[in-house]
Amino acid sequence: MSRTIMTVDDSASARQMVSFTLQDAGYEVIEAKDGQDALGKLDSSVGMVITDLNMPQMDGIELIKNIRGKPEFKFLPIVMLTTESQEDKKKEGKQAGATGWIVKPFKPAQILGVVQKLLK
């Protein structure tokens, strides 16, 4: 199983929060600042994507749809970051093909828990 995770977020600090946490746990992390950037950087080394929803250029839902559209990433675990007020977004994301979600604001342990669950 690949231990490389891509984190997509327009907020550099949120990205770093994810990277620090995962790197500490021994994962490789690729950072992308929005959907466009993520699609450009996505390759077969990536074992999982964690994406924010609210982003300029291409938002998270679009990104998920785009990734699912590619045959080689059809089964790639994708986790979205949502806020508790975005219940409908959660549904929309699931329909677009997201595997799961992490509710913002989150604690490092929560991220790690989800990653370990999906990258088993």
């Binding site: 327009d10 907020s11 600090s13 949120a14 609210n54 806020t83 007020s85 913002k104 604001p105």
Partner: peptide
């Protein structure tokens, strides 16, 4: 909205509860 959203989310994560709370209300 986006600026407030990030301030809220990151603020709380990095331990600035008060910043996060205020940003949350403005965001709402």
């Amino acid at each position: 909205f986006r600026a407030l959203h990030t301030l809220k989310g990151s603020g709380i994560m990095f331990g600035f509860q008060e910043v996060g709370d205020l940003a949350h209300e403005l965001e709402t």
